[in-house]
Simulated scan of single mutants.
Amino acid sequence: MEYILVTVILFISILIYFRIADQYNIIDKPNHRSAHTQITLRGGGIIFPVAFIVFCCFNLQTAIEHYGSFGLGLLAICSISFIDDIKTLSNKIRLSVHLISVILLLYFTGAFVLMPFWVWPILFVVIIGTLNAYNFMDGINGMTGVYSLVTLLSLAYINKDVVEFTDNDFIIYPVLSCLVFLFFNFRKKAKCFAGDVGSMGIGFWVIGLIALLIMRTGEYKYILLLSIYGMEVVLTIIERILLKENIFEAHRRHLYQLFANERKVSHLVISSVYAVFQLLVNIFLIHSQLPVWAIILIIFIPAGGIYLGLKWSLKKQYNL
């Protein structure tokens, strides 16, 4: 009954936001990087920080005792991202808030106690890089919501049947927020886009859960729960460096962008394929007893081969 009530609250919350966004003209206008062609409401991903606030309301004592630093980090990164959705901010301001949020996240997971100090800079780079990967991949209808849903459900399974590493509701609430968001976003003509507040918000929550799992188990293989995003972003950055392009400028070189923009494949099909590939990886990952290096080879050799093959074929076909 609680989850039904939470879903209703989240549904009402996003409808209220739509009225606000429409009144204040918070919209996404297509540009040369976009895979869409129509003006759409932006910032629908505000549902994710709202979900955490609702989580706190229903689990007040637990939230105060265990999730305070995480919540501060989440709300900080979502606030600055929402402002950036409305008005472009300087990189220094955004990066400063991101660093503060990551510090709070690492404190929440216990990384500062469990990991030697020389590892901390590596964790900062990995987490901020993964957050930006989430943002880079948020370019077509359904991608962020479906991909996050697959990862969150995988984490829920791990928490229930493999090793309990957090409160179950801390995973279920973002699952419910993804479902509500997808109701409006997983469409041919989306009612709203996540915006930076959405990609950063759900990305921060997912990364927090994975980091918590790794700290509790010592199993670094779980970072591969985001391996499809990671592979796509890293290979695209390498490609742009080889082409001597500015990797910080907007572009349309991601494989999903080529399929959506050049091949005109349905956004919903592309998003679903990415999610299914990650799901297959997760099933193998969770049940595998192989060492991490072997898991990485088994995942990335065929996945990387498929990715490079498809990209080469599309670029040749469309002379890109």
Rank of each mutant, 00 (worst) to 15 (best):
Ile4Asn: 01
Ser266Phe: 06
Asn185Ala: 10
Ile299Trp: 05
Thr144Arg: 01
His98Phe: 03
Phe112Pro: 10
Ile83Ser: 11
Leu123Lys: 06
Gly71Asp: 00
Thr62Ser: 15
Cys192Lys: 05
Gly139Glu: 08
Arg216Lys: 14
Ala51Leu: 05
Ile122Pro: 02
Leu149Phe: 05
Ile27Met: 12
Thr62Lys: 02
Ile27Cys: 14
Ile46Ser: 11
Asp169Glu: 04
Val206Pro: 02
Asn141Phe: 02
Val97Leu: 10
Leu41Phe: 08
Cys192Asp: 13
Thr144Asp: 01
Asp161Lys: 09
Ala63Gln: 01
Asp22Cys: 08
Ile64Leu: 12
Glu232His: 04
Ile64Phe: 00
Pro174Leu: 03
Leu268Tyr: 03
Val6Ile: 15
Arg33Lys: 11
Asp167Ala: 02
Gly129Pro: 06
Gly203Thr: 13
Gly43Asp: 07
Tyr67Lys: 00
Val102Asn: 06
Leu149Trp: 02
Asp167Asn: 03
Leu15Arg: 12
Phe284Cys: 06
Ser177Trp: 01
Val234Met: 08
Asn319Leu: 06
Thr88Asn: 05
Ser13Val: 04
Pro49Ser: 14
Val206His: 09
Cys56Ala: 10
Leu104Gly: 10
Val175Trp: 00
Ser272Ala: 01
Leu41Ala: 10
Lys188Glu: 15
Ala194Tyr: 02
Ile47Gln: 14
Ser199Val: 03
Gly305Thr: 00
His66Asp: 08
Asn282His: 02
Phe183Pro: 05
Phe11Tyr: 12
Asn31Cys: 01
Leu114Ala: 15
Leu285Pro: 00
Gly218Lys: 02
Ser154Pro: 12
Leu10Pro: 09
Ser266Ile: 08
Val150Ala: 12
Ile122Asp: 07
His32Tyr: 13
Asn135His: 06
Ala21Met: 07
Leu224Val: 05
Leu131Arg: 06
Gly43Thr: 04
Val150Lys: 02
Gly142Gln: 11
Pro30Lys: 06
Ile80His: 00
Pro30Cys: 09
Phe58Glu: 01
Gly142Asn: 09
His251Asn: 12
Ile207Gln: 09
Tyr318Leu: 02
Leu155Gln: 11
Phe52Thr: 13
Glu249Ile: 11
Phe183Ser: 14
Ile100Trp: 01
Lys311Met: 14
Ser13Phe: 10
Pro302Leu: 08
Thr130Cys: 03
Leu308Lys: 10
Met215Thr: 08
Gln317Met: 10
Ile12Lys: 03
Gly208Pro: 00
Ala303Lys: 00
Phe108Gln: 07
Asn168Trp: 02
Ile64Met: 10
Tyr220Met: 12
Leu131Trp: 03
Val54Gln: 11
Phe55Asp: 11
Ile80Glu: 04
Asn168Val: 09
Gly129Cys: 05
Lys29Ser: 14
Ile14Ser: 08
Ile122Phe: 13
Ser266Lys: 12
Gln23Met: 09
Thr7Ile: 04
Val175Met: 04
Leu255Gly: 03
Ile295Leu: 04
Pro116Gln: 02
